[in-house]
């Protein structure tokens, strides 16, 4: 079971500085989504004329399903400066992979809860770290795409673009570097030093 929580309001407003297209995932039954809070926030953004369109659906982690739905809304997406996805980390990565070249941001952090884990067709993974890094890394998760789960950039171990641990795996930070270049967000690499918080207790984490 996972639980998603909205990021803090200041962060969310900074992500919605320009026009945004919104994707809401009302999830599989294994994910608890903050539906009411998200709706209230999006209503405010709609009133402020920030929103080019809203897509609310389930299982956005299914890439085939998602491609069709996003294609149908291509004009609204093109009109937006960024796409904000309210879902678990898998959903954000699925959308960001399909909308290459578009700024795709996570509106939520994903936390683990004991119990049954969702079974969905996945090309990407979410570690439910509770401090989603996707907004700093172009929508590619450094926790799951890097063998060392590094959050401050590439180590010295990539050879010909591949990971020192698994030569069949592309270096996650090379992918991040390329994506940030593509979407014009290289400034994200100048963010403050990131230190992970491994506390799993929700209250402790939010301190």
């Amino acid at each position: 079971m996972l639980i998603t929580q909205l990021k803090d309001r200041e962060t969310l407003d900074s992500l919605a500085a320009g026009k945004v297209f919104i994707v809401n995932c009302h999830g599989c039954k294994e994910v608890r989504f903050p539906e009411e809070e998200a709706k209230a926030l999006q209503k405010e953004w709609l009133e402020a004329d920030k929103v080019t369109g809203i897509l609310t659906t389930d299982y956005i982690c299914n890439p085939e399903n998602m491609k069709l739905r996003l294609e149908r809304r291509r004009a609204m997406i093109d009109e937006a400066d960024a796409v904000i996805v309210f879902s678990c980390g898998v959903g954000v990565q699925t959308v960001s992979e399909y909308l290459e070249g578009k700024k795709v941001y996570a509106g939520c952090d994903t936390y683990p809860l004991p119990g049954y884990q969702g079974v969905t067709p996945l090309d990407v993974d979410c570690d439910q770290c509770g401090e989603c890094y996707l907004n700093l890394t172009g929508g590619i998760c450094p926790i799951t795409a890097c063998s060392k789960s590094l959050v401050n950039g590439q180590c010295g171990g990539a050879k010909n673009g591949h990971c020192e641990v698994d030569p069949n795996m592309e270096c996650g930070w090379e992918r991040i570097q390329r994506r940030l270049t593509q979407v014009g967000r290289l400034d994200a690499l100048k963010c403050p030093v990131q230190v992970r918080n491994f506390a799993t207790d929700l209250d402790l984490k939010q301190e």
Partner: peptide, 18 residues
């Protein structure tokens, strides 16, 4: 002499900052 100089320079800058 890495084949990903841009990623190395970005990391170097973060190290200087740190």
């Amino acid at each position: 002499c890495s084949d990903s100089i841009d990623a190395q320079l970005a990391k170097m800058e973060r190290k200087v900052m740190a």
